[in-house]
Every structure is written in C-alpha cells, then in structure tokens.
C-alpha cells in the first residue's frame, strides 16, 4: 500500500465520522467538532492525494488549498462557537430539537 493511500484513507474515514457526528449528534458543540472532523478529513485527503507526484516533491497547490481551508475553517468554527454560546444564553438549549439541555454532560 502506497504511503499516500494511508493518509487518504485516514482522511476519508475522518470525513465519514464527522458526517455521522454532524448528522446525528444532538449537542451543538459536538456538531461543531464534527464539522471540524470533516474539514480535517478533506485536508488529509488533499495532502495525501497531492503526494502522488512522480517528479519528486509534493504538489504545492493542494498545500495552498489546505492552508486557505484551515484559515476558513478556523473562522467558521469561531463563528459557530459564538453562535452556539449566544443561543445557549438566550434559550438555555444546547440542541436544535427544543429539548432542554442535559445539564450534566456539558
């Protein structure tokens, strides 16, 4: 198995895990973290697949994309946390299902 496939497979797995979390986890912080999983998954896939260059050295374009992607994801995550927090202060809810927050597992 080639090296690039290890990274890529890890990325795919991480992405699928993140998808499940974003879909099924109720707590909003879980959702934010799951979305970060998805992002990291894609970055791993980009880096992994960008490492197939036979001319020696990795492809710089996916690296640049990942750097841009990381900054964007950081921005999105910051916004996400701010909204989740404000939503919690305003309603006392930590999910979107209108169920009271579990309290203990915060």
């Amino acid at each position: 198995m080639s090296t690039y496939l290890v990274y890529t497979a890890g990325g795919v797995l991480l992405y699928a895990l993140g998808t499940y979390g974003l879909l099924a986890k109720r707590h909003l912080i879980h959702k934010v973290i799951s979305a970060n999983f998805m992002g990291s998954g894609v970055f791993l896939i980009l880096i992994g697949l960008g490492n197939r260059s036979p001319e020696g050295g990795p492809d710089p374009v996916p690296q640049a994309m990942v750097l841009t992607g990381i900054v964007v994801t950081v921005a999105l995550t910051a916004l996400g946390l701010a909204i989740v927090k404000r939503y919690y202060t305003a309603t006392g809810l930590d999910n979107l299902d209108d169920e009271p927050s579990a309290g203990g597992d915060r």
């Binding site: 080639s2 690039y4 496939l5 890529t8 497979a9 795919v12 992405y15 699928a16 896939i45 697949l49 960008g50 197939r52 260059s53 036979p54 001319e55 050295g57 990795p58 492809d59 710089p60 374009v61 996916p62």
Partner: peptide
C-alpha cells in the same frame, strides 16, 4: 469516496511542475 479515491492512478502531477 473510498471508491473514488481507489480509482485514482497512483501517480499524478497535478499542477506541481
């Protein structure tokens, strides 16, 4: 996604050069 990744050739240059 796994299928799509495995379908790729093991060597490709992209825009590296």
């Amino acid at each position: 996604v796994g299928r799509a990744v495995l379908a790729l050739p093991p060597a490709a240059n992209g825009l590296a050069v």
